[in-house]
Amino acid sequence: MKQAAENTPVVEMRNIKKSFGAVQALCGVDLVLHHNEVLGLVGDNAAGKSTLMKVLSGAYIPDGGDIFIEGEKAHLSNPLDARRLGIEMVYQDYALANNLDVAANVFMGREVVRIKLGPIGVMDYRHMEQETQSLLSRLKIDIPSVRQKVERLSGGQRQAVAIARATAFDAKVIIMDEPTAALSVSAIDKVLELVRELKAQGSSIIVISHRLEDIYQVSDRMIVLRQGRKVSDTSVEGDIHEFRERVVAYMIGARDDFTEKTVA
């Protein structure tokens, strides 16, 4: 991973707008992610968190605004474009194919080819399985076999596979949309551990979560969205109770740092 100018942000999104029909999901959001930083993204349901991140991962094309990756303007018209720039996303619903095995999911859409016969590429199973195996051990993910079908894995294991997949190709930026939703307490700890591990290995990460204690535990900084607008952008500090109260105040609209006519 090349560490470009330390103070150029890895990601900078400026004035991002996106609407779906009459619903204005994002009304001009700015977001900055620095090198080797974990950024928490919170907000009420339908605040626009997933939409903002899908814009960054190329799944949605914004109606307006600019995206800069390591200082260079990026044109993301599909998920492949974003992947090529090193942006990977773990989707809210895992986005795995349950009928395929772990290795197949990790390499989905990026299969390693052994021989090319015209338009037909013959896969290199062995290479993909070995790579997956070493990836899982590097991330300390405990799955019995890379040949296990995903439908036979537990929720926590699936989330781990989804995260492993996002990290498989030297991603610069990893986005995780509610990685701890629907998981047991011990599985949540595993996922948070994974986030720390990835940070230690040099990645920059954005985590969306409704569980404020998760954000508090792993994030360096936090952005709060409310009704498609950014209302807070501060570093994570202080004690957890004070933190929680502050975040909730932003989420329900009692506080707002980015509008002139501040609500009481």
């Binding site: 991962s57 599909n78 992947r83 895992y94 194919a97 990026r110």
Partner: peptide, 10 residues
């Protein structure tokens, strides 16, 4: 197995 996932994987 999962058309949306496939599409998101390119």
């Amino acid at each position: 197995g999962n058309p949306e996932a496939a599409e998101l994987s390119g």
